[in-house]
């Protein structure tokens, strides 16, 4: 059934396009390359604007907690944030493969870490105090963090089920705009774009934070 449905749909599309007078040029790729794109590839000049500052401001607009720290102060910053979370929630913090060891150098006693090895079942992820990751890219224009779930980011479930996510963004990872950011990604990988904590506009079209994803998003921006 499936093969014939496929052929019939494709044939209907060709007939419909002819009927609508859309005689497409034979080479779709050449026609695509010739499409006019007059929009701005960048809304902010990275040379003259504080792109990192813009990212910090716009991520905070979504009610994420955002802090800028010097690279050297990162371990102390992480220790402080995790200690604050540990005071409010029980459980360990899961650490993905590839997270730089020096980031966790200053953790106080009483903070326990967990590895996703072997992969933790969802019910166990749900018992964790939180997760600490890096990211792949960030977008200043929209205050967005992009995970490609490579090194230091863990598989997708790791940053989804726990209720607290501490993400470290390095200033060099901040792209000014969407075009720059998407150009830095490998489409073959899975991605999660995160703009603030989980939220909904489903009640009276008013934004409310805190539904199924992590309700607490803490961002540390590490600057050289």
């Amino acid at each position: 059934m499936s093969t014939s449905a496929r052929d019939r749909i494709l044939s209907r599309i060709r007939t419909a396009n002819r009927a609508a007078g859309q005689v497409a040029p034979a080479d779709a790729d050449a026609a695509y390359a010739a499409l006019s794109r007059e929009y701005l590839r960048a809304h902010h000049d990275a040379g003259t604007n504080d792109i990192t500052g813009l990212f910090a401001e716009r991520a905070a607009d979504y009610r994420a907690v955002v802090e800028r720290v010097p690279e050297s102060g990162l371990p102390a910053g992480i220790a402080r944030v995790l200690a604050g979370r540990a005071a409010a929630a029980s459980g360990s913090f899961v650490i993905p493969d590839g997270l730089p060891g020096e980031w966790l150098a200053g953790l106080p006693a009483g903070i326990t870490l967990a590895r996703d090895e072997p992969p933790l079942p969802p019910a166990e992820l749900d018992q964790l105090a939180g997760v600490v990751t890096g990211c792949a890219v960030a977008i200043a224009e929209t205050g967005t963090i992009i995970l490609d779930h490579g090194p230091a980011q863990g598989r997708r479930a790791l940053t989804l089920v726990p209720d607290f996510h501490l993400v470290v963004v390095q200033a060099s990872q901040v792209a000014a705009d969407l075009a720059d950011a998407f150009g830095r990604l490998d489409p073959g990988r899975p991605h999660t774009l995160i703009s603030g904590p989980s939220a909904t506009s489903d009640i009276e079209l008013i934004r409310v934070e805190g539904v199924h994803g992590p309700r607490n998003l803490h961002v540390l921006i590490a600057e050289a």
Binding site: R37, Y39, R41, R58, D61, Y62, I139, E141, T142, G143, T144, R156, D177, L178, A179, F182, G183, P187, G188, R189, P190, H191, T192, L193, I194, S195, G196, P197, S198, A199, S201, L205, R207, G213
Partner: peptide, 27 residues
Amino acid sequence: RDLEVFLALLPRSSTAERMNPYTSTWT
């Protein structure tokens, strides 16, 4: 690369946000 256009248009038109909280892509 077409996402650079459509992800600029959709959240602002839909929920009036610069970007929606979560977007997932998978291949």
